[in-house]
Nucleic acid binder design. Structure first.
Lengths: 356, 356
DNA sequence: AGTATCTCAGTAAACGTTTACCATGACCTC
DNA sequence: GAGGTCATGGTAAACGTTTACTGAGATACT
């Protein structure tokens, strides 16, 4: 069952079948009709491999993530897939699982499949490594860490905006002892978040207590340990901002085990706004870094680069905003007499902090 | 940069390069060495499309899920990918998002990519539809709902085992009023879970109160609504078993909003043992249906079928067990004087109910 | 009417591999 | 030493498309 069978049945040449199927406008309406009829009758599906081979374009985009089981990624994969399907692309999904072997393998897989471009969404975890393993000047898109070179785009995340909102939100409720649990500091993005926190604190005139900044690992365990550390201090924070949602969940978990109530005794803010945030008890106030938006930017970057007649000399820069999403894990600090848990808010829908 | 360049440089024919790269044993060690050297020097990567075209095997398996954002699936995708990579397969991931259009598209994508087999892991959600759109007698693997025909395998899930354990666990703590929140009852798997619950109750001599069985939707909202319904009854359950983890989380969330404490006032048990279960506060006791095991079974089913010289006439049946995982969302019912929340347990590691 | 231009469909050469078949030479066997 | 058997490498034909080129007929122009 190939294009020749269709051609025979429609009494045309294979070229005409090809043109029809690819919706080339120059083919006569009558003929096209005959061709489509034959296609339907025979149940003909064009062979992707043959198409790719001769046309030199595979219509596949690679997508590299650190691990799909990280709650940050499923949404990205979903959106990326949807976009790809719309444009008749396929996606080659690989996860590095933080393993150098797997990273190398990922690159090899991309090349052997002759992908038309690849999105590296690993957040500075392993981007350098991947970049090192030179893709043969394919369209590439990184977040934050991409090199300035032809055909490679970058999505710059504006971490500061959302973090500033969060700090101001806490300050407005008269929190003065605000802690921060970082991610692993070899991550560019983790450092950026921490810096943004410190800047925001200074900006609003709150002291940055170095003891209140403790390192986590962007996972549950790190959050738990961090809170333990914080609660061994002489003075303790009344609010803690976390470098990602998993960390915040760890903090909440540890609080639960220590009998500390969230948000009455301790306010907690996450980062990412993964779906998890809204599943928590209480629902987690967090800084949104839209995963769907990120996926969309990444896909568009690749798609546009592929469409370009002449490669972009220095890539393109995109920006992704972040913003505070208010839920129910923050409230006035316990010492404050106006104590009034944010709880009541939780009945209304999630709100962004921008206007409301 | 193709196989001919390599052949030229190694001063052999393309056939020899091909054989070397494919590790055919008959090629002389000396020659092979020359070939590998040339491969390395030129940075040669074989072209998958060309390989697939001529060999007739794409080395790609399709994987159809309902939605990647459903916490049940990421783990599956991860495992499936890992297994595939090991065997030098790629994976074509599609999600139906419960949309008939997307299902049809998924099938089309599979066929156009000439996949060597496909795993349909959508849990009776849309399997019938997918099956209807006949794959051209490819190796297929379903869970629960596959038809008996050549080359299609089935993974039968033993829902009863885990559910029985859960009911007995609750009964052992003297719960007598046990509720059940079902999934959407058009799902085979949801019905199976409900039936298993009723059977287990009867088996242990507990009454099945129809009022205590309320329908959910396998999502957060359904769980919340279900608990509202249950708490409007004259008599209320002291424990509720849920058809999946999301439902259980919904129940917990609603309990939180109603001021009902879990597990002191209400014991909650989930189903699936998604990662979420362990993130909850308190950590959710749930029935595990191992996602990694499921992925492994699915992959192996396809792989073995592909390797067979002669197609299996009636597919193969695999079985997946389920079992109770004890965490901290269950305790003695409040009325019972021996009231003693399971809390203390939570400090030790998760345990299975089989032996401990 | 003759020629130039345009439109549209067909012909056939790629694309980069694998692999059936053949050729060569080494080694046995009698 | 002739003939047979083996081991191994080369030749070339596929695989199923796309697409540059060609050519035939229609239309327009002078």
């Amino acid at each position: 069952m190939d294009i020749r069978d269709v051609a025979r049945r429609a009494r045309v040449s294979t070229a005409t079948v090809s043109r029809t199927v690819n919706r080339v406008v120059t083919v006569d309406a009558q003929l096209a009709k005959r061709v489509w009829k034959a296609v339907a009758e025979l149940g003909y599906y064009p062979n992707r491999q043959a198409r790719a081979l001769v046309s030199g374009r595979s219509r596949v985009f690679g997508l590299i993530v650190s691990e799909i089981t990280n709650p940050f990624f499923p949404e990205i994969v979903q959106t990326f897939e949807t976009l790809a399907v719309e444009k008749n692309y396929e996606i080659l999904l690989t996860s590095t699982v933080h393993d150098p072997k797997r990273m190398e393998l990922a690159v090899r897989r991309m090349i052997e499949s002759r992908v038309d471009g690849v999105a590296i969404l690993t957040f500075g975890m392993e981007d350098e490594l991947l970049e090192h393993l030179r893709f043969r000047n394919l369209p590439l898109v990184f977040v934050d860490v991409g090199p300035k070179s032809p055909r490679v785009s970058n999505i710059r995340v504006d971490y500061a905006h959302g973090i500033r909102q969060a700090v101001q939100h806490l300050a407005a409720m008269k929190h003065e002892q605000i802690g921060f649990v970082t991610g692993p500091l070899r991550l560019r993005s983790a450092v950026a978040r921490k810096d943004a926190f410190e800047d925001s604190m200074r900006e609003i005139g709150l002291p940055v207590n170095p003891e209140f900044i403790v390192q986590g690992d962007h996972r549950l365990e790190g959050g738990k340990l961090a809170l333990q550390t914080l609660y061994k201090l002489r003075e303790q924070p009344t609010a803690v901002l976390c470098s990602n949602d998993m960390t915040a969940i760890g903090v909440m978990r540890q609080a639960f085990e220590l009998g500390i109530r969230v948000p009455q005794d301790l306010s907690v803010v996450g980062f990412d706004d993964t779906r998890l945030a809204d599943f928590m008890i209480p629902p987690l106030t967090t800084i949104q870094m839209s995963q769907t938006e990120l996926a969309r930017l990444a896909f568009d970057a690749l798609y546009k680069e592929v469409k370009r007649e002449t490669p972009s000399p220095n890539g393109t820069e995109y920006t992704l905003k972040t913003q505070l999403i208010l839920r129910s894990s923050t409230a006035f600090p316990p010492s404050n007499p106006a104590s009034n848990p944010t709880k009541s808010r939780s009945t209304s829908r999630n709100r962004t902090a921008d206007r409301d």
